[in-house]
Design a protein around this nucleic acid. Sequence first.
DNA 1: CACAAACAGGCATAACCATGCACGACCACT
DNA 2: AGTGGTCGTGCATGGTTATGCCTGTTTGTG
Lengths: 261, 261
Amino acid sequence: MHDHSIAELPSLRRQKILLLLERDGKVMASELSQHFAVSEDTIRRDLAELDSAGLVQRVHGGALPRPKDSGKDYFTRLDETDEVKVRLAQLAAQHIEDGQIVLFDSGSTTLQVARALPADIRITAVTASPLTAIALSEYKGVKVILAGGELNPHSMSASGQEALRLLAGIKADLAITGVCAIHPEVGITSLHFDEVPIKQAMLDSATRVIAVTTADKLGAVEPFVVAPCTRLHTLITERHPGSGNVEDYRRLGIVVEQLPD
Amino acid sequence: MHDHSIAELPSLRRQKILLLLERDGKVMASELSQHFAVSEDTIRRDLAELDSAGLVQRVHGGALPRPKDSGKDYFTRLDETDEVKVRLAQLAAQHIEDGQIVLFDSGSTTLQVARALPADIRITAVTASPLTAIALSEYKGVKVILAGGELNPHSMSASGQEALRLLAGIKADLAITGVCAIHPEVGITSLHFDEVPIKQAMLDSATRVIAVTTADKLGAVEPFVVAPCTRLHTLITERHPGSGNVEDYRRLGIVVEQLPD
DNA sequence: CACAAACAGGCATAACCATGCACGACCACT
DNA sequence: AGTGGTCGTGCATGGTTATGCCTGTTTGTG
């Protein structure tokens, strides 16, 4: 019933709030306060944080699941995607060469990479994300292999044994991954527990790994560790002053490419 | 069947009012007051709020659905074959019940079925089509299992050993299939060789099979045989004079449902 | 018209909320 | 150690929202 752990890590508590929200379809500030034995103020701050992160819908008295974007909204959302991501994707796409076997992670950034390929590309693409699979199947010269299994509603990608087994049987030349968060020492971390094994399997199956990420993810840490930074060979990101220094990654032997200003 | 989990969250209550309105076509203030165990004043304020947000049409005694924009309907109506498919899909969707495990074939018709499900449906859905998988993942209560493997560019669905093995391990209550062609004696046939094994596997894994098809497919024959008609339990099609007589199928023991004129 | 149901506006109360502040824990650095 | 910074938390303040009840008015119906 109650959570007996004495000192809750804030991020862990927020993670649990998300689980409760998914289970019950709603959470109330007063109940959460009691459940975690913290003041309602803390819960309110948690919910405000989760709301601004786009993970819940804050309402009076608590929070509700974020309404899913419907199909047509999805395409408009693609149009709204940051122009920065498109430019990063174009940079990443230049690393992909004819004849390669390429793993595509799920996520909006890698989806943009899939859309940024030259029209006459000839590769074999492997992905666990149906969205990315559809984008890739637009290319006549791309053979698309889709990993199956139960679909994770958050990341819109397959997870579980089924997908892992398929990935384990593949040795790819290249993996394109978008990272939730990356930190020079902690490594690559994710917000969703379910995504971790599949991301790990992708990194394991690829001889070369390219990560594409916006500058705000640099130096960030999420609850679940995917891999150390040393797994990366190339990091493609923006040139952005202030946030994380890319030299930290270069010292780890990672090739860092940055968008021209 | 009252809502025993009282909605303490105002916004959740309004959300549920919208669902009730969609389900019943109308809501009455007095009934809602009883249903949610709040005063009629509160319900009135809810309805006023929803009305000013443009989500319902407030009337004396309750509220009605807001008349839809004719703009969107206009574009969808441009393609009248789609219109028929949508209506067929709605008919098929009525056969799907909460708790079932449902196989969704690939194809535009079954995709429409996936879109025609009630918003609060709770099922486990299995499909080899990433497009259908995405449509299904819009529903909160639907667990989506995607069959993986190489993507067939024609049908936009996974085929091959990988997908077959997943389907073989599933015993579903229901399969929804759109047929390329169906003939009383020849049976169900397909234009694409690659699709045949996967369609067969779906039919084998389901205890009940519903086929949805437009009238022009009745009596047609394509090169590759999938299964005899006796595999079908229900056939949903248009009422269309001239083309194939549905009595042929009824004599085979198939329940035939037709669109009202 | 007469009558009951539904309504709008005002009011009081309780729950909920945003903000600022203070305290303690922790970390980095001299 | 010491020091200064950040972070998470709880508390106090005053503002906002939601709700139920009241009063009088409007609407639909026989």
